[in-house]
Design a protein around this nucleic acid. Structure first.
Lengths: 199, 199
DNA sequence: TAAAAACGTTGACATAAAGCAACACTTACG
DNA sequence: CGTAAGTGTTGCTTTATGTCAACGTTTTTA
């Protein structure tokens, strides 16, 4: 199986490993799944999904990073998710219910992605037990993370939030700019800067 | 089918309707699903799942209401979910990954529930396509709601949070005490009281 | 490679909300 | 049914954090 994966085009190898890692898949199924994903290069700051757009694809990150954020009436940015190499990302609520995203999916840096259309995605979910299971896992993990974030933030002051994010996502503050990290933590960039300096 | 449901014991009727509403199920499957649920009466304030406990059941509410909350080191309560008649509730993260809940599931009032064990639940998920689909829906809705809550709260002041909750869950402030509502909104009870008075 | 734009840090100041306490009112329960 | 515990409201004071602005540094891009 490892040989099979190594024989694949390089850009499909990380995804193949991702899929294999979760649960054993036979070559045929794996091939079928991979064939639904199209390579896609995006530049720094490029927007993949716009605020009023309906999300029609799911993205796997080969290199680079993406972020999900929204902007409220007052012009305040809120980031809710950052995805790096080897992770999936999309505006999932919109992907699920096909309503306007009300958020942006944007590349933070120049990135190489694999994209699967919504149609192909749900065809796989409905016809491939393994893929259905992977989707379930994506939802479960997404749900659990969202809960952790709600508890991790509520009633916490700036110092506690920063400690929490260092503990639960050690790489986060290193890879993400202060400004974006602040918009994720729900504090101002100045407060984040001050807080880090007294850790 | 309606006749079939009406012929069921009263306590199973709301759940039967809930299941039917989502997608058509034949009588046999419905019967099989219902037979996994055991009736359970709990008193006001009774705790169904404790902080360090591993969650082993899913609950459907016939009458009454439940809430999920946690208490941090400083003794601050944070509520993350309230469930009323006709809704499902459990400490889902713990139910999924079988780690300590790190939260409490508690009856707000005297309630009548139907409980299904984790084993039976996942047996149904794995053997009954319909039930698998219902689980997927539960996860999707849970995920989407969590995202809304994250965006709905971040960077909002007390007034905006209260308006947001009135808009997105009109019944909420009516059915839940000020204290609990405040712990859900992440503001103090006094601030909630003051905020409501200037709406 | 140099100019411009964006970013991080820090200080001074303003402010929303927390904490505390007192009181009236409601609800719970022996 | 009456006492006790809990809840909601409101005033006063304190405090954490946001805002604004200035400055030096890093990053971007032409």
């Amino acid at each position: 199986m490892i040989q099979f994966i190594n024989a694949l085009p390089k850009i499909y190898q990380p995804l193949a490993f991702y899929l294999m890692q979760r649960n054993e898949i036979d070559q045929e199924k794996l091939q079928r799944i991979l064939s639904c994903f199209q390579p896609l290069k995006v530049s720094r700051k490029q927007v993949l999904i716009n605020y009023s757009e309906i999300c029609r694809a799911y993205y796997f990150i080969n290199t680079g990073s993406l972020r999900l954020f929204t902007v409220n009436n007052a012009g305040i940015e809120t980031s809710r998710y950052f995805a790096f190499e080897g992770m999936f990302a999309t505006a999932l609520p919109s992907f699920i219910d096909q309503k306007p995203a009300l958020e942006y999916l944007q590349a933070i840096e120049k990135s190489e992605l694999l994209a699967i259309s919504r149609k192909d995605f749900f065809d796989l979910v409905d016809t491939t037990a393994k893929f259905s299971h992977i989707y379930r896992e994506i939802l479960e993990i997404g749900f659990v993370n969202a809960q952790k974030r709600i508890y991790g933030f509520q009633g916490f002051d700036a110092l506690e939030k920063v400690k929490w994010v260092i503990e639960s996502q050690p790489k986060f503050l290193v890879r993400v700019s202060n400004k974006m990290a602040a918009s994720y933590l729900g504090i101002s960039p100045s407060t984040l800067s001050r807080t880090k300096s007294r850790l």
